[in-house]
Nucleic acid binder design. Structure first.
Lengths: 251, 251
DNA sequence: AAATACAATCAGTCATGTATGTTTTTATTA
DNA sequence: TAATAAAAACATACATGACTGATTGTATTT
């Protein structure tokens, strides 16, 4: 709706730059290739052949470019030419790896989803940082990263885009479930208080995700964040069952 | 990006229906006109002339249609032909009232902004309903209405759209200020506890707005809403200064 | 040589802004 | 007061630019 044509049109020179950087990447890849033949397992993760490795790398570059585009320009302005440019590839080459835009988006969503779950798992694998404060700050850091921003951008778009919703909603449900499972593993002490646990989890997610969006969209001042996080931490400790308070609480 | 061309094309018949309903409205307006000449102040709110009333009505129809489009199809798919169709008007007629898409969006934002503030003021003007529970439920009802959904849709789009941001961000700041002023008027008892007041306000907005978005986008189950609202209400009462607890609290 | 990665080009569709008609309302005056 | 010119509301048509999917062509790998 509100997009001035002059701004939309990308200059020819910019395209050339992209093409140029593309060639640079190609050269770098060629060099990698010659050395890679001696250690196949490292780069040849997929089919074992060189082309497969190249394809996998290009695919991954495209997915990363898609996420960058969504974060920088929004989902609506993430067009196939733009992603190709961002990846330093021609659109034709891109269409070779993903038969259409929908395929690219779908692959990106799945990749994003797994990225978020991996990040969450890594956080869980640090038993020395299982106190409430650290976990809150860790999740707060997460919701400010590109993966979450892109995910929210997609979630908003999916509200009015059935095709997107069909891909995204099942994944969101899976994320919620796995998120909950991880959280249970993190806090075995809450096992006998499922209601409180549920409240603490919902509260954490709502406040931190809501705040991240509010700050991103200018609905809230950044200055209020520390106050809110501190309050949330205290709240979680207050909700916590007395048995757990000794192990995970600090206050 | 992900929009199948077949779905995008709107059938001819739908357009005809819009045209027809348009004529119906015109006829209704004509009838109003003959009677309106006896009581000019009612319908001729603007310049006093009949055309002015007609223009105002059409303008308002266009703004409402824009909001409906944003809510139904998302900001990105809110195109000028779509809005015109939704309003039952030709695109040319629409361009007569708003010289371009930007003007329409800007007017819509201002209208939305004032609508939200009016709704908030109405809530404030009921001294009999100034207890915490009622206020929370009132605001919760607000953030589920089209005005808030559209506003969020615009806020997300503005993150990556400078032109939109230039219109929206100043208005958002104004909204925050007016919102705060209204809230102060609502709770004079908190006057001597600005820090607590700030926390209670931020908490309320973050939780309810965040939850509304989360529910809308499928990130959260609707079932968890009552639990969260109850908790928020209790929280506000806990944060409240002791002097106020007697008047506005229910415990 | 067959297949795969990649590039370039084309036709179709849609949105945007603008220019040009048509009808209705308002103002003016005979 | 009836006729009419000016203005405003509304409709239609056109030119431009962008994205999409598809086709065709080239170089590299197997």
């Amino acid at each position: 709706m509100l997009a001035s044509p002059a701004v939309m049109g990308v200059s020819e020179s910019e395209y050339s730059i992209a093409q140029h950087s593309n060639q640079a990447i190609q050269m770098a890849l060629s060099r990698t290739r010659t050395t890679a033949s001696t250690k196949p397992a490292a780069t040849r993760s997929n089919g074992g052949t060189l082309q497969a490795a190249k394809a996998a790398q290009t695919r991954s570059r495209l997915l990363e470019a898609t996420v960058r585009c969504i974060v920088k320009h929004g989902y609506a302005n993430t067009t196939t030419p733009r992603v190709a440019k961002e990846a330093g590839l021609s659109r034709g080459a891109m269409m070779h790896h993903f038969e259409n835009g929908a395929a690219l988006i779908k692959a990106t969503i799945i990749e994003l989803h797994e990225k978020r779950l991996r990040a969450f798992r890594r956080a869980a694998e640090r038993p020395e940082e299982h106190d409430v404060d650290t976990l809150v700050e860790t999740y707060w850091a997460q919701v400010q990263k590109p993966a979450f921003i892109a995910f929210h951008e997609l979630a908003v778009a999916a509200r009015t885009d059935k095709e997107l919703a069909d891909i995204l909603l099942p994944l969101q449900e899976e994320f919620r479930d796995r998120f909950n499972a991880q959280a249970h593993a993190l806090f075995p002490e809450w096992g006998d208080s499922p209601t409180q646990f549920d409240l603490a989890m919902s509260l954490s997610q709502t406040i931190m995700e809501g705040m991240a969006i509010a700050v991103q969209t200018g609905a809230m001042d950044r200055e209020k964040v520390p106050m809110m996080l501190t309050h949330l931490e205290n709240q979680i400790r207050a909700i916590m069952p007395a048995t757990a308070r000794a192990t995970a609480g600090k206050s």
